[in-house]
Every structure is written in structure tokens, then in C-alpha cells.
Amino acid sequence: MSRLLLLSPLLLFLGLAYLLPLSGVMLQSVTTPEPGLQNYSAALGDPLVWSVIWRTLRVCLCVTVLAVVLAYPLTLLWLKGNTATRVLVELAIMIPFWLSVLSRAFGWLSLLSNRGLINSWLQSLGIIAEPLTMVRNEFGVVIGMMHFLIPFAVFPLASAMRSVDDRVILAARGMGASRMRIFWQIFVPMTKSGIVGAALLVFVFSLGFYIVPTLLGGGRSVMIAELIYLRIFQIPNWGLAAALSALLMVSIGAFLVALIKRAGVSTT
């Protein structure tokens, strides 16, 4: 009883600030403008919604693959490098956590935009004549999201790499296996659980991204979260926005269940 009492402020806060508005949204998706499932059929029947869903999946898949692939060598450096390398990599992983996603998105904007640092540098060196289009498209969105999500991929990878028994690697070396063979045929397969875990985590996170696609996509590569925003504030259609939110939440929930099930399996 006393445990429940101690928890009650948190439960109350979550109930008022989260559960109540959420159930309001869920309710709206089946009541606005009139009761029924017409919002869901409208959402799933709209080719624009489908193109946004496909883009979201495409971008998130790209981000996931790139983030995990780049996080893998980074994690290796963090765990196996010399002391200076480790400290450097650790800072590189931790500092992004302290910066707001908004300032990072603006940072990328000033680097990648047509009159941004990279383009003006390349132009002044005479390497390119016309600025490269690196924002207001999926490229910019992928870069920005990947930068945010790489640290999240590092931790599941690190825990998998730490559990690899050094003697297994020594055994393979003693049999004359080359470094490449040991890496690809022994080390990578032994960290498979970390790779899958990192990929699921990054993918789930990326599905609901709003600020980065909005700023770096510049309204041209709209993803699902931005579409929901547009359906609320630009073409007010709260019922449809609520239905889209519900769809997004359910699909993320499904991935989370898969993630937790995996974690449950790997710990037993």
C-alpha cells in the first residue's frame, strides 16, 4: 500500500499529462466529426498518406542501416582502442546527448544548406560550380536523424561486444585465421544480438521523428509525424490526425513488443 502511495504522484502526473490527452486523441479518431471508422478508412485510402508512410519507412530504414553500420566501428574503437581513443570516442558519444535536437538540426542546416559552410567551401575551392542540394530532401533528413541516433546504437552493440569471450578470438587466431576472417566469420556473428537490438531500437526511435525531418526536409520530404502536425494546424482535420497518430502508435508499439521479447529471450 505504501509503495502505491509513493508512486502515486508519478501515476497522477502520467495520468493527467499523458493518459488523459492520449485517450482524448484516441477518442477523437473514432468520433470526429461523427462516430465511426471513417477517419481510418480515409487515412488508409489516401495516396498522399501512403506516400508519406513509404517515405517514412524508407528514410527510417536508411537511417537504421547507416546508424548501425557507423556505430559498429565506433563501438569497437570505444571498447578496444587505447586510452586516448576511448576518451575521445566516449566524448563523441556523450556530447550529442547534452545538446538539444533543435540546435543540432540548425547546426546541420548551416552546414548543409545551399549557402551553408560545405557548399561555400567547395565553391570557393572551385570543386563545384552550382551548390549541391543537401537539405530540403531525404539526404538531409537521413544525415540529421542518423547523427542523433548513432549513440543509441552504440550501447546495445557495446554490451554484445563486451560479452564476446576473448579466448574464442585467440582460438581462431591460433588456428591461423586472418584478421578479416575472424572479424566477419567469428566476431560479427557473435555480436548478432547486439546488431539486431541496436537496429530495432534505432528504427523504433526514428519512426516518430518530427523536428529533424521538418527542419532538414524543409516541407519537401514530409514524414508521418510532420503529416500529423500538418493535419492539425494547416488543414484542420483533427479526426484524421488522431487516426494517423493511433496508427503510428500501434506500429511503434508492435516494434517495441518485438524488442522487449528479444531482450527477454537473450537474457534467459
Binding site: V168, L170, M190
Partner: peptide, 11 residues
């Protein structure tokens, strides 16, 4: 070489 703890490839 044979190690303490076998060092087999688990996968």
C-alpha cells in the same frame, strides 16, 4: 590450442 572454458564458436 585448447583453452580453459573451451572457447568454441557459439554460433
Amino acid at each position: 590450442m585448447m583453452f580453459q572454458g573451451y572457447a568454441l564458436f557459439p554460433h
